[in-house]
Amino acid sequence: MIRFLLKRFGYMLLSFIIIISLTFFLMKLAPGGPFTSEENLPKEIEEKLNETYGLNDPWYKQYANYLGSIAKWDLGDSFKSRGQSINDIINRSFPISLILGFEAILIALSLGVLLGVIGALRHNKAPDYVAMSVAIFGISVPSFILATVLQYVFALKLGWFPVARFESFTHTILPALALSFMPMAFIARLMRTSMLEVMNQDYVKMAKAKGMQSKVVVFRHLLRNAIMPVVSFLGPLVVQILTGSFIIENIFGIPGLGFEYLTSITNRDYTAIMGITAFFSILLLVSILLVDLLYGFIDPRIKVGKKEAH
């Protein structure tokens, strides 16, 4: 197990370095810079700014500086928002994205699994069709359209929820719903398929033949075995929801990290791009690892680290 973890950490470090290096060079290749604005800066001022921020240094020195600052997790000051450090920006906006993401995942997971199970148990009957229509709707309607519709109907027309901003729990409901719909639909379909597969397994037929209550069969045998694909989807999903929330955050005026990430790119805010990318990639790598560990916990047949031991 320890060998497995060490090996995994090694791979994680390697992927991490590749990710931030690629980001660094792509960012440097992109035309424009942090001081690009409509009104051309006086040349002497631009020169001075470049010097102050070390943009006149050769690329390898800048690259080394970035790696160093990420190693120390002192990500430097934003180019665009004066005096705000990237650490502060992440500390300020990540909890907001986290709350939103947590709510969205909760909704997606509970409703998604529920719809999937209903669909499978009432296979090819009315409830199945209803559940799968909801799922197809969720997959095919992009989240920003859903967000706009939710905002228009529930906030503007009915006045049940605030239109935008992030101030109280009520403010989080519409964005969390908009964010959860797509993964919910995906989970529902995943769950239904894998339930159907598990239902045809011999041990399920056996359990039923033994005269077990169907409720018990569903919970003890079906759910536990069928949930595996959903669990493996969970890792990427967490990161996808946290990083991909910028459109929703934009529509609902929420100062989350996804939103900061998007603006940092349009602003060519080099330190912010590098810092937030590093943060998100660590998040992704760690959650993938966690999911792998979770496999072994849910399914005793999978012995984490065993394969490598052979």
Binding site: T148, A155, G159, V163, A164, R165, I251, F252, G253
Partner: peptide, 18 residues
């Protein structure tokens, strides 16, 4: 001054009285 980047959102907030 509420910081709202999206024009449509700002307009919706105006319509709802925020």
């Amino acid at each position: 001054f509420f910081i709202v980047e999206d024009n449509n959102t700002a307009f919706n907030m105006y319509q709802s009285g925020d």
